[in-house]
């Protein structure tokens, strides 16, 4: 009767290792079982190209909108899709929370010694994200090429910080919005999809909106930090670039809210059959 009870500590290294393991297994399963994810990839890429065409048609009539040129707006537009793609490909699990909660599938996550958030993230992979990342990445690349940017070590570093924060904000918003699964159980994903749609606002410079809407996009559901603020920082828009320093803070704020909601939600979690 000898037993050494294991102990588990979640160091960042271990979490990264587990993420890789879980993601890798999911990917293998997808490649093996679902053959036609390329329809999704194609559709996602196509949707984005159509939107880009729209911008192009508009800007062919008028070169500058409130001080923002075509490629600058294209960058914001692409950031929304790119971040969506990253969310789908690497963090698709957030969109499965409704099922996890309603079908009681969180049970098995709760009895495993690793963070719930990590397990939620790894619940699935949205291959459509590949389409968004490819096209979004291409447009971002093209806009960086077309806009005259003063590259230096500091500008590269701040760009990296701002872009990483942008992705974190987006994923945090997804997670927080999908926590609604604990409260709204009868309406499918409608609520998180609506929050997701607020990203529409951030496809364009937020200066075009009324003040209330601007505040909402900066402080409420801070989509501004996904597209607008990175654009301002990268393209050296003096009025707005200073907000870049708030980007990591915005990411922390969104994730804080998301984790809080998850915590409260888990207290309400009723498993299934009740």
């Amino acid at each position: 009767m000898t037993r050494t009870t294991l102990s588990v500590r979640n160091t960042p290294r271990r979490i990264l290792f587990l993420y890789r393991r879980l993601f890798g297994q999911q990917l293998k399963a997808i490649l093996e079982y679902s053959s036609d994810f390329y329809v999704m990839i194609g559709a996602a890429a196509f949707t984005q190209i159509v939107g880009f065409l729209f911008l192009w048609v508009v800007f062919s009539r008028i070169p500058v909108i409130q001080g923002w040129g075509f490629w600058e707006v294209a960058f914001m537009y692409a950031m929304i899709y790119f971040s969506e793609g990253v969310g789908s490909l690497f963090f698709e699990g957030t969109w499965r929370m409704l099922r996890l909660v309603n079908m009681g599938e969180l049970d098995r996550y709760l009895v495993r010694p690793m963070p719930i958030v990590l397990q939620i993230f790894c619940t699935g992979i949205g291959m459509n994200g590949i389409g968004n990342i490819a096209i979004g990445g291409a447009i971002i690349g093209m806009s960086l090429y077309h806009v005259d940017i003063d590259w230096s070590i500091t500008s590269v570093l701040s760009a990296l910080v701002v872009l990483a924060s942008a992705l974190a904000v987006r994923i945090g918003i997804n997670l927080a919005a999908n926590c609604s699964a604990f409260w709204i159980r009868t309406s499918g994903n409608a609520f998180p999809i609506m929050v997701h749609n607020m990203g529409e606002f951030a496809k364009y410079p937020i200066t075009i909106y009324s003040l209330g809407l601007q505040l909402f996009l900066a402080l409420g559901v801070p989509f501004a930090f996904v597209s607008f603020v990175p654009a301002a920082v990268l393209f050296g828009k003096e009025d707005w670039a200073a907000y870049g320093w708030l980007s990591p803070l915005a990411a922390a704020y969104v994730f804080g809210i998301a984790l809080l909601l998850l915590r409260i939600g888990l207290r309400r979690y009723e498993s299934s059959g009740n």
């Binding site: 679902s34 036609d36 994810f37 329809v39 559709a43 949707t47 459509n128």
Partner: peptide, 14 residues
Amino acid sequence: TTSGFGVIWARMAV
């Protein structure tokens, strides 16, 4: 195809 979403998205974009 089993990818209903993909088809809907593509249709919407077109």
